[in-house]
Design a protein around this nucleic acid. Structure first.
Lengths: 342, 342
DNA sequence: GTGAAAGCGCTAACAC
DNA sequence: GTGTTAGCGCTTTCAC
């Protein structure tokens, strides 16, 4: 038991009222400079820390924000989530906030968790992932004036609904695949294939559109359809994609994920044009990409987290703040392909 | 603002004292059955939730446990961490606890974070990862009687120091590679190679020993050294390992990681014995393994988290509880190798 | 600019 | 068994 020093101890010790200590901390301008310095120094030396519970009881503010953790497989998980969470925790800390985690199996359950966390633990705000148009959670929170920011644009059956009435931060997948495509164009490629997922996923469509944009811009009139392959998110599907598109004359490949890219590059390495294996770009810059030396579009997850926190603070500090949207540019991580199958 | 109903509202409404309400919640045996039921029902109907801050202020107990998030690359991260965190959050919730995250760049910084989180936010306990012998953090916490449990045995320059004076939960890597090896033996293999990391890492040594044990047990007298390959944790290194060991007559491969296994299987597929590619087993069952259809040893991270929480609760409820150690068996996830490079 | 009073919502201790 | 008293540590009035 560290003997906790309270505001009263400090006040007695300094011969001032506890209110003065409180003011030094919360409203420094109301205190005479001289007193302020004397008190501040004493706080420093004594190791006094204002008790969060007492503050929370008084203010109904916990300096805590909540984020739901999805079971593996749903929404973001793995490396991207880890990086985001790390960034979020750091950003929160640097603003005097903490991050509380919670789980839920459905949106309904998440809402009852909100109810619990807000009334019981006074959580100040939330970070949402995987929002969609007409999201019950967003509506529930908005209706009660509980601040929140989404990581990820709200998608609705493949369409981006950026005009949603709430703040969000996202990574611009389109810009990422566009940059990847342009990199390949600059390297002399002209027939660049796109290996992705079937229509319907917002993220998938977004990533595809960057490739499409670059291709259209540079090689305007050609029909892009023959250079597109869509399948499930596995390496096997990536291989099939590479095989299919190679047969159609593709010499380079932009992929919607590292799994697809892994399969594509593996296929190419053992094809009759193994050099093309290094003309494959993946997405998300997962550890696989690093392990095999695959170029990949890297999401700036920590910056995204910092932005999320920044917007959330805006809402926390002024409840009437307008929703804001931030779209971050990913970075193309270029690597030399490791000759890992020979 | 949801109109919060407090213990006083409820007491007035029911015509009992607030203490009775409190008793129904915290010491039901002291309340007459009839009253208890009446109060319990009213609690249910009114949606009353005891305020955490008030409770915390009174009890110096926050019903919150803390866990440090490591920046990507250090210690566990990615899928394993995500799964563990999810399991931890669920387990905590089911016992009425919440999980608070924090960051630190070093052990020293983590300790100052403890100080802050304990005195300021009344965190009740902590989960440690990557503990080692003579860990400052463990000593600091133990000295102050702050409950904690480690995920991972304390390793000291490659040696397991299971006798550490604190509770831990870990996954038995040895048992995992042993099972993988025995699976391959049962499939008719005899010369089974091990592709791992250089000596020095506790986890690496642990995983290697399972293979060694199984080999020694089944093929006693043979010198295992020629069947071992050690390199960095990349697919390229896995390929080199497979090439080297294949030349020495290996027909199957147990790997310390999925990255290594990925490289090994890719190498084998394009070797003159492509069928051997399916005689490769990885470790950690990451998304790569799933994507390429690689068999892999899977850590029961959610059970590990549940166990961590169970031990932590033990310490939370009785501060004098003896340290306990739990070693969990991983599971061999068998997959049919996808022909992803053709 | 500083101090005094009051109360946030809860529970341990005690009295009834 | 149930009610009363007191106080956890803090901050927002309001006097001074």
């Amino acid at each position: 038991m560290a003997s906790r020093v309270t505001i009263v101890d400090l006040a007695n010790q300094l011969g001032v009222s506890r209110q003065t200590i409180s003011n030094v901390l919360n409203a420094p301008h109301r205190v005479k400079e001289e007193t302020r310095i004397r008190v501040a120094r004493a706080i420093e030396e004594s190791g006094y820390r204002p008790n969060a519970a007492a503050r929370q009881l008084r203010n109904h503010v916990s300096k805590n924000v909540g984020m739901r953790l999805q079971p593996a497989g749903n929404g973001i998980s793995g490396t991207v989530l880890t990086g985001f969470l790390y960034g979020l925790t750091e950003a929160a800390h640097s603003h005097g906030y903490r991050v509380t985690l919670y789980c839920a199996d459905s949106d309904e359950e998440e809402i009852s968790r909100y109810e619990e966390l807000v009334t019981e633990a006074d959580l100040d705000g939330f970070i949402l992932t995987a929002t969609h148009h007409g999201d019950q959670r967003a509506a529930w929170l908005a209706q009660r004036g509980i601040p929140f920011v989404a990581f990820g644009r709200p998608w609705d059956s493949g369409r981006d609904v950026s005009d949603a009435g709430h703040s969000w931060v996202d990574v611009d997948g389109r810009s990422g695949t566009r940059e990847a495509t342009e990199h390949l164009i600059a390297a002399g490629h002209r027939r660049i294939g796109y290996i992705g997922w079937p229509n319907g996923s917002g993220v998938g469509g977004d990533r595809r559109s960057g490739w499409l944009e670059a291709m259209t811009e540079h090689f305007g009139t050609e029909d892009p359809a023959p250079l597109i392959y869509a399948g499930e998110d596995t390496a096997a599907s990536g291989s099939s994609g590479a095989a299919t598109l190679l047969a159609r004359g593709a010499t380079a490949f932009v992929c919607a994920s590292d799994s697809l890219a892994l399969g594509a590059s593996a296929y190419l390495r053992q094809s009759d044009q193994p050099a093309l294996a290094s003309a494959v770009v993946g997405f998300d810059n997962t550890p696989v990409a690093a392990a095999v030396g695959l170029s990949s579009v890297s999401q700036p997850v920590e910056s995204a987290a910092a932005e999320v926190m920044r917007l959330l603070l805006g809402h926390l500090n002024s409840p009437t703040a307008e929703p804001q949207h931030v779209l971050l540019r990913p970075r193309l991580e270029l690597r030399d392909l490791q000759p890992f199958n020979h």
